[in-house]
Design a protein around this nucleic acid. Structure first.
Length: 573
RNA sequence: UGGGGUGUCGCCAAGUCCGGUUCAAGGCACGGGCCUUUGGAGCCCGCAUUCGGAGGUUCAAAUCCUCCCGCCCCAGCCA
């Protein structure tokens, strides 16, 4: 090709740029590859979490940018830890996130025969051998980080013997752990992965996808690269800890002389106030520290879905986080921002009083009901309006009243006038308390001239409260969530204690008897997301039954008042 | 005291390969203001004389060289 024919480095369709896309650009420009095929290779040994979402967005995103495709491949090489439940959940989660692998659903276990045949090729080439050593012996002979290893006494078996033994391993003649197939590379390599790595081990265990077909299973390194190669993957994107494995990944492929993808490593996602390792997520579930993989406090995609997170918000988050090789911990507030940004534009507004405080309008006619027009979404006029009933007895939020209001508290207080959203100005005339001295009711008056919320005399009010008509509201359970951990770094525990000691006892608060406006009835089962005005974004929980609606708070609204209050509290202490 | 990575604002992150009008982007957070029938949303302003540190090369360095320091990963028949 002449210089003038040289293809332009195809800029990513998205216009995005990061070190991975830079590499892809180079490959396309220098001819190493003429297309892009990536893959997302989960091991079905747990549920997907937000960290996987970053990888999914990256793999599918890069492919999409270059008009390529992405395969879904289950890296199912360890039947002891894997299950169909996980396979199913992973597929559900990827689809929910908004990505489509079309017909390209693969399983490393479908390549086991090919892997077996290739192992035979390596044995014949004198590059692999059957080792009778125990796991302990292999570990001892591997050496340490600073000392080289020693060759196994079985390293120089004849090709014939290796072939025979390997075949019998496959045939099930030997018990678990009695033999392994190892690559013959270099016991003195400074890269421990190259010290005659185990390729295949004996595991008499049924496999969720392959069934009872096999009793020998390939190790990650022996399976992954070859699987990539078989599928014609061009860019095999993985996390940083596999950087040391790249030489081995390439060694196997070079020995076999097959298609060689480019492995590229990036830094995995970490988020403040949560844990992300599968081991810990499993522990949370198994030790019943949460209610399951889909507990709304979990960073799993199923948990976030139940919590009301949107795929759009998660994808936006993945994009804003970026891709690089620095170990990093992303601030949870960025995720919250992405959620609010998305939900603000599309969530219809409704009124719901979570902790009700009774308000009686003394001068409002007994038995009268007014239907007031309320906007469904101030951000989106096309969302229209709805009628909300208003009457003599109402509920407002307990926290919207203070008998002795601090300076910056603008809400209701004795003698103070505020606006009830879309309704009237009301003034607090009398505070009713119970025997315990708790405020149980407010006697107020309303100004009939302020219907809709505007005072004809131009009178201003400093606060607008949400409310609900007592006679028309219906009850619901509302679940409020906070971070699962009290520390931004759950590992920051006291001496002798682990991350579990940082679990947040207040991460779940269940409120019963919350009062919701009638229009919310339509959303009881729909799973639709709404904003309860001033309280946050909510979604119905699957625990909802026809007679007992349950809502989850997805995320709060930005709360300037809470910030002021917190600052004042901190200052006075 | 082996090998592989990585250090740019509180948190992410461009820029580093090809040193100089992109040369310290952008986002989150934070602070201030405007506006507001959600203390929501929106809008405006502010927020790194400095790029882990020290030397050096150069007319010019976050970008090149040297040395030093920190952090992460690797000694599973896990992935």
């Amino acid at each position: 090709m002449t210089p003038t024919d040289e293809p332009q480095a195809p800029a990513p369709a998205s216009g995005k740029s990061d070190f991975i896309r830079d590499i892809v650009n180079d490959h396309l420009k220098n001819g190493r590859f003429d297309r892009v095929l990536t893959r997302f290779p989960p091991e079905p040994n747990g549920y997907l979490h937000i960290g996987h979402a970053k990888s999914i967005c990256l793999n599918f995103g890069v492919a999409r940018d270059y008009h390529g495709k992405t395969n879904l491949r289950f890296d199912d090489t360890n039947p002891l830890k894997e299950s169909q439940e996980y396979i199913d959940s992973i597929k559900t989660d990827i689809r929910w996130l908004g990505f489509d692998w079309e017909e390209r659903e693969f399983y490393a276990s479908d390549y086991f025969q090919q892997l077996y045949d290739w192992a035979v090729v390596l044995i014949k080439a004198g590059k692999a051998f059957v080792d009778d050593s125990t796991a302990d012996q292999i570990r001892e002979m591997r050496g340490t980080l600073t000392e080289p290893g020693k060759p196994s006494p079985w390293r120089d078996r004849s090709v014939e013997e290796n072939l025979d033994l390997f075949e019998r391993m496959k045939a099930g003649e030997f018990p678990d752990g009695s033999k392994v197939l190892r690559a013959k590379i270099d016991m003195a390599s400074p890269n421990i992965n190259l010290r005659d790595p185990v390729m295949v081990r004996i595991l008499h265990a049924p496999h969720p996808h392959a069934g009872d077909q096999w009793c020998i299973y390939p190790m990650y390194d022996w399976a992954h690269g070859q699987s990539d190669s078989l599928e014609g993957i061009t860019h095999s994107i993985c996390t940083l800890e596999f950087e040391d494995h790249r030489p081995l990944y390439e060694w196997y492929i070079d020995q076999l002389g097959i298609h060689k993808p480019q492995q590229i490593e990036f830094a995995r996602l970490n988020l403040t106030y949560t844990v992300m390792s599968k081991r810990r997520l499993l522990a949370l579930v198994q030790e019943k520290l949460v209610r399951g993989w889909d507990d709304p406090r979990m960073p799993t995609l199923s948990g976030m879905r139940r919590r009301g997170y949107t795929p759009e918000a998660i994808r936006a988050f993945a994009e804003k986080v970026g891709v690089a090789k620095n170990d990093s911990v992303v601030d949870f507030s960025l995720l919250a921002f992405c959620l609010r940004e998305d939900l603000n534009k599309r969530a219809p507004r409704r009124m719901a009083v979570l902790r009700p405080l009774k308000v009686t309008l003394e001068n409002f006619p007994e038995g009268q009901v007014e239907e007031l027009d309320c906007q469904n979404n101030p951000e989106d006029p096309s969302a229209g309006t709805r009628k909300v009933p208003f009457s003599k007895v109402l509920y407002i939020e307990q926290e919207d009243f203070r008998e002795d209001p601090p300076k910056q508290f603008f809400r209701l207080a004795p003698g103070r006038e505020v606006r009830l959203r879309y309704a009237y100005f009301v003034t607090c005339r009398e505070v009713v308390k119970n025997a315990a001295g708790e405020v149980v009711e407010l006697k107020c008056t309303y100004d009939p001239a302020t219907r809709g919320g505007d005072a004809p005399d131009g009178r201003k009010v400093k606060a607008t409260l949400h409310w609900v008509s007592a006679a028309h509201a219906f009850d619901a359970e509302v679940r409020l969530y906070d971070h699962l951990f009290t520390k931004s770094d759950p590992d920051d525990a006291e001496e002798g204690r682990d991350w579990r000691s940082n679990l947040n006892p207040a991460s779940l608060e269940m409120l019963k008897g919350c009062k919701l406006e009638p229009a919310l009835k339509d959303l009881r089962q729909a799973g639709e997301r709404v904003q309860f005005e001033r309280m946050g974004y909510f979604v119905t929980d699957p625990d909802t039954t026809p007679g007992a609606p349950v809502f989850n708070r997805t995320v709060t609204l930005k709360d300037t008042w809470a910030k002021i209050e917190k600052k004042a509290g901190a200052g006075s202490r």
